[in-house]
């Protein structure tokens, strides 16, 4: 039995049912950042306290594409052979922020269209003998209900 751990700590919660991205918010100004460590690009935030916030877990699809060829390290190819994947950029309404992520396996580009509602999911990025390394992914809203995911 492998232990699930975040592939990189501090970027998302490990709540499998309702995962959230962990971002930053300038308390006074109201700008959001993801990841939180990149706070500062808003010059009006100088001296503002950056609080840790959980970002909206749903948004609208801004754009999408595929990765048809294996990327170089530090991408880790899960399993024995590279499988192409889909990547989504999703626009979070409240935060006015567009966030990248892979799309959960089993969803093809033919099922996607700009503007459709997407929700955050947690999936295994890669594994070794002891751990499943988890990452956030995007899924069409409602995908995985009725046990299909």
């Amino acid at each position: 039995m492998r232990t699930p751990v975040a592939a990189v700590e501090g970027l998302f919660t490990l709540d499998v049912d309702e995962p959230r991205l962990i971002g930053g918010r300038a308390r006074g100004r109201g700008s959001y950042f993801f990841p939180k460590s990149l706070a500062g690009s808003d010059p009006a935030c100088l001296g503002d306290e950056i609080e840790e916030v959980l970002l909206s877990r749903t948004g609208r699809l801004w754009s999408f594409t595929t990765g048809e060829y294996a990327p170089p390290a530090p991408y880790v190819i899960p399993g024995d052979e590279f499988e192409p994947y889909v990547i989504a950029a999703v626009r979070l309404e409240e935060e006015s922020l567009v966030v990248l992520g892979q799309v959960v396996p089993g969803v093809s580009v033919d099922e996607l269209s700009v503007g459709m509602e997407m929700e955050l999911a947690i999936d295994v990025l890669y594994s070794d003998d002891e751990h499943d390394y988890l990452v956030w992914k995007w899924a069409p809203a409602g995908h995985g209900e009725n046990g299909e995911g």
Binding site: R29, G30, L38
Partner: peptide, 11 residues
């Protein structure tokens, strides 16, 4: 190489 855009929530 960013994972997200800037936020236009405040400005």
């Amino acid at each position: 190489p960013y994972l997200a855009s800037d936020s236009w929530a405040a400005a």
